[in-house]
Each structure stands twice: as structure tokens, then as C-alpha cells.
Design a protein around this nucleic acid. Structure first.
Length: 515
RNA sequence: GGCCCUGUCGUCUAGAGGUCUAGGACACAGCCCUUUCAAGGCUGCGACACGGGUUCGAAUCCCGUCAGGGUCACCA
């Protein structure tokens, strides 16, 4: 079976985490069953539409490897894929319904509608609009419309039960008497989303509509429209909403700025963004894909995490490679309740994927961060790359995100050592630190086999002779040579630093702190 | 408020009447390893929203209550 799914974002300037999860499910379904995943741009709302706001969305998908088979920049047989370029078809279909009496012109003013709405609210019942002209004989509505164009409403049939056999939610039903007659064409002739979406789904031969749960209520109306247009109804699947971390509230597209906490802002500043830049960019927050890309997350990590949010393979799989996800994805195993986005778990998943990344790739992806922080030129020399490679090898699994290079590399690129006050306090100003550093400095001066294994041996020999624990030497030495108390293995550190820098830094530390 | 949907550890989830004194993962706590950090190993903490049915038996089916969410635009 060949299926067709679609994702229909409006050009907002960023790819939202919740949206991309929905898109991922669509994409996985087509890759699993075989078929096409279509990207269609919902830009019918001219007020909100910004043409330049599409690129970040396409970039985001490309980065994640979610390739669309038809849509912007790739074209396809049922284009155009921008709703703003399909206006004629919506109009045509609306006229069609109008002629058949399945839609009708509505001349009520905004004030009249508001009054009606208020009345309904006061009576504590839902506002269900029924225009005065809804029962005009077929043809007459069309005539009236031609004489005096106005908004067109879809005529919801009376006394029907609309059933959505939803692939995720199961059986959902609604009485048609409780469904308002929706506007399908505005007074200016432009279509409303609900209608355009149906027209396009039919025109684009969409077989599976997989979209967010917040559209479920709309779907009752759309079911009626599919029928009125004589089209068969696609498989409907409404994926549950993604909630804010540790919350039951939807991870909203509105007000994303609130996710930029001081902690998040610190993270962004650590990778080189100024507070002004953070403030200016509305896509730099944890609700967007761009944010994770900036911090050096892996596409595969994000995909795995998002795929497991609301969907599961079995009772224990957490790390599911993409080919496995594709091989086993099904709507039946999508949960029907909403799920909270968990940054901690995403971080863990990413770390697991990062272990598979070859050193050379970490070097390549780490350079831009080091460049922005001023530690390396944009194109480092061969020797700088060689040095970075040794550092990253020594880091092992400590790098969970590409931006983590900033936590481990700087001491090796500094001309003048910067000391963390805590390291000085805890590791250098301790009784005995000075004597041991001085004594060991002499030993190191005489050490010529400058490799980690030998340095390890030399230090342990010293400790045995002095009858002290290795920790008493390791900690002051790390602080004296890197200015920090945290880092990877000390002997790797000393080896990479090299003999002359090591000796010089120890001496300098002794002088500086008057030890 | 009307309508629609949902309710298993803090979070993501497994669970399709007996194999559930409810399994896994993240997080958290403790211990081990150790050279700090990370990793690893072990242990612990921790949930079927509540109340009624149906049944020999219910996390699983039914009803009600409560709670949460979504939606009620000439937005998408």
C-alpha cells in the first residue's frame, strides 16, 4: 500500500518541538508503509505570513533528516504546495458547494455575530451559528452571492451524528446540531484554514491525516466537508499534545520567551550568544529545534527522543535507531494521552548517541564553538586540529553535546592560565600542597618519558615513597596546570600539555599564590 | 460554561481479565570503582485518580465522581 501524509506548518520562523514531533510521526508512517510525505505551507493568513519565515522550518527538517517527498523547493505532481497559491481552487470548490446549497452566503455583520455569541455565552451554552440564509433553495444562494459577495458558510447538516474513527483516539463522536456553520470563505474571498485544509487534502490525495490533538474538534466539521465534497475520508489520527516539562500544559507556540530562564540564558551565553542576541531571536528557546541545534545536539538524538515521546516500541527499548523506528512504527502504538517534554531525558539520549560519534566528527563540529569563544581561528592549523583531536580523545564519553568542548578544551589553548577560585581554595591552598608540588616539580623536571602511562607511574612512585594517597597529588596538580578542579584524566592532561608547559604552569602557580 | 478527549512511579512508558506483592527508562538518593568530573556496577525511593458495579478473579470491561487538557474566530 502506498500512502500519502502531510505536515502543514504555517511560516512562523521556527520549527516548534511539538510540531516536529507530529511531522516525525507522519514521516515515520510513510517510511514504514511506503508512500509520500508532503510538506504544505499554510500561509493563507496574510497578516501573519512572512515569506522569510519559511526557511528556518525547511532548514530544521533538513537538519533532522526528515526529507519531504513533495513540497517547497522539491515540487511534486499536485502542487503548488503553498496555500496562498491555491486560492483559486478554494474559491471554485466554495462556489460548487454554494450552487448545491451545501454552503450559503452570510451577510451578518461582525456586531451581529458578536451579539449572538454574547447571548449564547450568557445562556451558558455553546455558540452554534446558523445563518439566516442557510435554507435558501439551491442556486439562489449562489445568485445572491454573485450580486453581493460576502462571507460564505458551510451548511452543517441537521440531526446527524458525526463519527471519527480515529486511529489513535478510537471512536469519537459529535452531534451535528452541536457544530457551528463555519465560514469557509472570508468576505475578501480568502479561505479559512479548516476549508482549505480539506480541499488540499483531497487534491493532494492525502490518505492519512496525522495531526495534533487540538485539531480533533475541527475534524468533526471537516468530516462533513469531505462528505459534502463527495470525497472519501482519509484515515484520521490525532496525536496527543506535547506538554511543558513536568506540566500538563501544552508546550505552546505563544510566549516561548518564558522558557528562556536564567539557566537557559547562561547556556546560550556559554556558547557565545550575548543577552541582546538571545533577546532578539525568538527561535532561541527550548521549545524550538534551532535551540538544540545551536547547543550541539545530534539530529539522531532528537529524533530518537521525539519518537519515543508518545510512542513506544515495546516495554524496554529506549534507544531505537532510525531504521528500527521506521521498521516498527505504527499509529496503534501511539499513546492517546498527552506527554511532557523532558529535557533531562533528551540530554541522556543524546549522550548515548554521542558515544557513537567518531572523534574526527566531534573535532569538526567542536571547532565552531571554540572559534566563537576565541580559542581557535575559524580554520585551525593542522597542529591545532591535531591538538584538539588528542583532547577530544581524552574526553571520551564526557562530551554529550558538541558545545561541551567548551568545558574541556580551554585550558589547553590558554596562553595565560585562568584560575577557578574554587579550585585554588580547595586544591592549592591546602596544607602540604606547596611542598608536594615543589618536590614533584623537581621529579617532573627530570622525567623525560612524557607519556601518560609513565607520568602515572612516576606519580604513584612518589606517593608510595611519601606515604600519601594519590589524590593528594592529583588534585593540586590538576589545579596548578589547568586552573580547574574538573577535567579528564590528569595524566592525559599532562601529556597533552607537554613537559615545558606543565613545568612552567606549576612554577607559575607556586609563584602566583606565594606558595 | 457547552462540547470533545485523557487519567499507571516526579517524567517518558510496558500492560488488550489471571503470568502484576505492576516491568523498563530518565531523574533523584545511597554504596562500589576511582584521580576530580563523566562513564560503569549494585541498591534504594517511587504509580494503577476516587467510588461503585460485572466477574471465581480487574490496572485492564461498564457506570458515576473528581482532576487535567483541548476546543468553542471571517487564526492556524
Amino acid at each position: 500500500m502506498s500512502i500519502r501524509t502531510r505536515f502543514a506548518p504555517s511560516p512562523t520562523g521556527y520549527l516548534h518541538i511539538g510540531g516536529v514531533r507530529t511531522a516525525l510521526f507522519n514521516w515515520l508512517l510513510t517510511r514504514h508503509l511506503g508512500g509520500q510525505f508532503i510538506l504544505r505551507i499554510d500561509d493563507t493568513d496574510s497578516e501573519r505570513n512572512r515569506p522569510e519565515a519559511l526557511q528556518p522550518i525547511l532548514d530544521g527538517f533538513r537538519w533532522l533528516g526528515i526529507q519531504w517527498d513533495e513540497g517547497p523547493e522539491v515540487g511534486g505532481p499536485v502542487g503548488p504546495y503553498f496555500q496562498s497559491q491555491r486560492l483559486e481552487s478554494y474559491r471554485e470548490q466554495a462556489m460548487n458547494l454554494l450552487k448545491q446549497g451545501l454552503a450559503y452566503p452570510d451577510y451578518l455583520s461582525k456586531e451581529e455575530l458578536d451579539a449572538e455569541r454574547k447571548r449564547a455565552e450568557k445562556a451558558k451554552r455553546a455558540y452554534i451559528h446558523r445563518g439566516p440564509l442557510r435554507d435558501l433553495p439551491p442556486g439562489e444562494g449562489y445568485e445572491r452571492y454573485l450580486q453581493q459577495p460576502t462571507a460564505i458558510r458551510f451548511r452543517v447538516p441537521d440531526d446527524q451524528t458525526v463519527i471519527i474513527p480515529d486511529a489513535i483516539c478510537g471512536h469519537c463522536e459529535q452531534k451535528s446540531d452541536l457544530i457551528s456553520d463555519p465560514v469557509i470563505l472570508r468576505i475578501d474571498g480568502s479561505p479559512i484554514y479548516n476549508f482549505a485544509s480539506v480541499i488540499d487534502d483531497i487534491a493532494m490525495k492525502i490518505t492519512h491525516v496525522v495531526r495534533a490533538r487540538e485539531h480533533l474538534t475541527n475534524t468533526f466539521t471537516q468530516m462533513l466537508m469531505f462528505s459534502a465534497l463527495g470525497a472519501s475520508i482519509p484515515v484520521m489520527a490525532h496525536v496527543p499534545v506535547v506538554n511543558e516539562p513536568k506540566s500538563k500544559k501544552k508546550l505552546s507556540k505563544r510566549d516561548m520567551k518564558k522558557f528562556v530562564t536564567s539557566e537557559i540564558s547562561d547556556k546560550l551565553q556559554a556558547i557565545g550568544y550575548t543577552p541582546e542576541q538571545i533577546e532578539a531571536r525568538d527561535d532561541l528557546n527550548p521549545a524550538t529545534v534551532a535551540f538544540y541545534r545551536e547547543l550541539g545536539y545530534l539530529p539522531a538524538g532528537l529524533i530518537n527522543y521525539l519518537g519515543r515521546l508518545g510512542w513506544s516500541l515495546d516495554d524496554k527499548s529506549e534507544l531505537i535507531p532510525l531504521d528500527q523506528m521506521i521498521a516498527h512504527f505504527s499509529l496503534e502504538r501511539v499513546n492517546s494521552s498527552s506527554a511532557s517534554f523532558d529535557p533531562d531525558k533528551l540530554y541522556w539520549v543524546n549522550g548515548e548517541y554521542m558515544r557513537q560519534v567518531p572523534t574526527a566528527e566531534k573535532v569538526k563540529m567542536g571547532i565552531p564553538y571554540l572559534h566563537r569563544a576565541g580559542w581557535l581561528p575559524e580554520t585551525p592549523s593542522d597542529s591545532q586540529v591535531a591538538l584538539l583531536t588528542r583532547i577530544i580523545e581524552a574526553c571520551g564519553d564526557r562530551i554529550k553535546l558538541y558545545s561541551d568542548v567548551l568545558q574541556f578544551c580551554p585550558p589547553f589553548f590558554m596562553a595565560e592560565l585562568v584560575y577557578d577560585p574554587k579550585a585554588v581554595e580547595k586544591r592549592l591552598l591546602k596544607i602540604g600542597a606547596r611542598d608536594h608540588l615543589q618536590a614533584f616539580l623537581k621529579i617532573l623536571t627530570d622525567t623525560n618519558d612524557w607519556v601518560a602511562a609513565n607520568l602515572d607511574k612516576v606519580l604513584h612512585d612518589y606517593c608510595t615513597a611519601q606515604n600519601i594517597k594519590p589524590g593528594e597529588m592529583v588534585h593540586p596538580l590538576r589545579a596548578a596546570t589547568t586552573g580547574r578542579e574538573i577535567g579528564f584524566g590528569l595524566f592525559d592532561t599532562l601529556e597533552i600539555l607537554g613537559k615545558s608547559v606543565t613545568l612552567q604552569r606549576i612554577q607559575q602557580t607556586l609563584n602566583k599564590f606565594n606558595l
